[in-house]
Write a protein that binds this DNA or RNA. Sequence first.
DNA 1: CCCCCCCC
Length: 604
Amino acid sequence: MSQLSAGICRRLNEAPQEEIDQLASGHTVQLLSIKKVAPTTTSTTATDRFRIIISDGVHFVQAMLATQLNDLVANGDINKNTVVIIDKLACNFVQDKRLIIILDLHVVSRNEEKIGTPTAPPSTQDAPAPAVLEATSSSVTSPATSSSTGQAKPIQPQPRTGPSGRGGRSVYPIEGLSPYQNNWTIKARVTQKSDIRTWSNQRGEGKLFNVTLMDESGEIRGTGFNAVVDELYEKFEEGKVYYISKARVNLAKKKFSNLQNDYELSLEKNTEVEECLETTSVPMMKYNFVELSSLEKLERDNTCDVIGVIKEVGPLGEITSKATNRTIPKRDLTIVDMSQYSVRLTLWGKQAEQFAADDLPVVAFKGVKVGDFGGRTLSMVSSSIMTISPDIEEAHLLRGWYDGIGTEKNFQSHTSGSSGASFGGFNRNEMRHLSDVKESQLGMSDKAEFFSTRATIMHIKSENISYPACPTQGCNKKVVDLGSGWKCEKCDKTFERPEYRYIMSMAVADWSGQAWLQGFNEAGLAVFGKTADEVHEIKERNEAEYNALMAQASGVTFNFSCRAKQDTYNDQTRVRYGISRITSLDYHEEAKHFVNLLKSPWAQ
DNA sequence: CCCCCCCC
């Protein structure tokens, strides 16, 4: 049975803040409870927060687990009754309550019984009993439920005398910032500074910039507008550490934030920013790497951190933005990691132009955006950070692995199965059921969305499956029968006979549902095994034979790559599913795919 | 008060 550090809970409950930081480390406690705090927003991307109860065998107190430790909960590393040693904690006073945040810990033992019969420590006049911490903790995560804004008198944190103290003010952990406390100073490193951006919309125009601020407890985004840009933009330098105070703490709109923080800072006219040269306590960067194999689990538009070896550096290219019509340089990298997956990652703008590494370095990416084009892709966004050959353990491990055996590995691609990563290609790893296609409202946005599905033809609208087309290569326009010939308006030419091309609408079904798919020439060729000219000729000559051909086509199953897009026709808006590829089932190919699945890391 | 982050 473990020996707990009796007395620590009482001290945590009574000691003034400046002492708590010093007495914090090295104490052994038991976790009596780990509970997820109700999410702040309805957003599904809101970061989980865990409230824990720690016991020293005599007393217990409540605390919050820093979100950077959430993995310990998710992985089952810590549970009820786990005994841990606290390596680092912070305490801050929010109004009249104290909030203890466990910043780091390590496990001593699991599967223990509850040790002793701990009770709540006696309340003191100066320091409130932990019973009120319930309210404190939820006020951090659920400000909407708090009714006490501006009513209670905040306890002024005691000035720190240690080396990180400053001008009689206490340094707060970023994790502890909340809208209800404004007399704070954080000591944070600028891990990222945006360019100055301008905007102009109905509500007005202006300019702004963002910084990402980080300390050992967490991260927060800061934004400065207009005059504040002039005042502070030059002052902030990436990598440097600053004392920052008198900024406003707002609820972050999670939709737009990739940081693990429910709040963000609005840098105001009177916000104080002062460089701090004593920087050793502030980490350089914080990562929460995901393996490339598990990108499938992330939704499109999520952001994540990854680390990989650059296996391929694509050529500098450019695209023309549909929205702005501007030309933007881009460069695709292929990165691989120990999960034996590869993924394409796109750099934009200057970063694309200037990327010159030719020695296949290890690169860490923070806050890159997940795309789902043909599987999974990653893309740098303005808040992403790319670090080439970072001096971190994961990088050294990866380097060693890759130089040893990684070079010889085959990497599973996220972009497609056997047919290659072509646009709209069939992807066995990303098959959707028809009901899923409809339920997930694919194509309901302004953009076209692509999916792969396997379905059986139930019915083909037989009245009109082809049209007379211009025989000019690549024209395919409908031609008009003049009696004396067929005229193409586009080519301004008349032809003796047209070339029929398929245009067909078919109902397909799988076990989950059905859908109407629109197919063109390629689809007809696959379905009938004949050209549209041939089928048209049959229809003219022998209606019964034509009907038999139609009947034959029903009940056949194909692999489809489809494009879902909203379409307005006769004032009716609905999603249409176009067939971009159709292939007969190839059982050899299907079996090969299953074998690959069995060999892949996630089957082990 | 932005919140765009692009293309196949």
